Simulated assay, not measured.
Amino acid sequence: AGRYFPPEEVARCTFGVVLDTSGSMDRTLLGKALGAIASYAEARDVPAARVVFCDASPYDAGYLPATEIAGRVRVRGRGGTVLQPGLDLLERADDFPPAAPVLVITDGMCDVLRVRREHAYLIPGWASLPFVARGPVFRVR
Rank of each mutant, 00 (worst) to 15 (best):
R27F: 09
Y121L: 08
V17R: 01
D88F: 01
G62V: 12
G2H: 14
W126V: 12
P101D: 07
G135N: 08
F15I: 08
D45F: 10
S24M: 09
G16M: 05
R76L: 14
A41Y: 02
G62N: 11
F5E: 14
A49I: 12
V51S: 04
F15C: 04
D20G: 03
D60H: 13
A41T: 05
A49Y: 01
A100D: 04
T67L: 10
G16P: 03
R139C: 07
D60M: 08
R3T: 13
I105P: 04
C110E: 02
R116W: 08
L129A: 06
V102P: 01
R3V: 14
L64Q: 12
P47T: 04
A99E: 15
I69K: 02
L30M: 14
A49S: 15
D60E: 13
P97L: 06
L34A: 09
G2N: 10
L30R: 08
T14M: 09
D20P: 05
G2P: 10
A11M: 08
P47D: 13
D95N: 07
A33Q: 01
P47I: 06
F131M: 14
Y63P: 00
S22E: 06
G71C: 08
D88M: 04
P97E: 08
V73G: 05
D94F: 03
R139M: 08
V46R: 05
V115M: 05
F96T: 01
C13I: 00
G71R: 13
A43W: 12
G80Q: 12
R3H: 13
M25P: 01
A133F: 01
R139E: 06
D107Y: 03
R92W: 07
L89P: 00
Y4T: 13
I69M: 10
Y40P: 00
L103E: 03
P130M: 03
F96V: 09
V104W: 02
G77L: 10
Y63T: 05
P124H: 03
F96S: 02
H119K: 06
F53H: 01
D95C: 00
V82C: 05
D45E: 15
E8L: 11
Y4N: 06
F53C: 07
S128I: 12
G79N: 06
Y121V: 00
R44H: 15
L129I: 11
M25W: 00
I105C: 13
A61M: 14
F5Y: 10
V18A: 09
F15A: 09
R50G: 02
P136D: 12
D20M: 06
G2C: 00
V140Q: 02
F96N: 02
A70Y: 09
V137T: 04
R116D: 12
V112G: 03
V18T: 06
V18H: 02
P85K: 06
E42W: 13
D26N: 15
E9M: 14
V75F: 00
R134T: 15
R72D: 07
A120Q: 11
I123N: 06
G77Q: 11
C54I: 10
G79L: 06
A36F: 11
G71Y: 11
D55M: 01
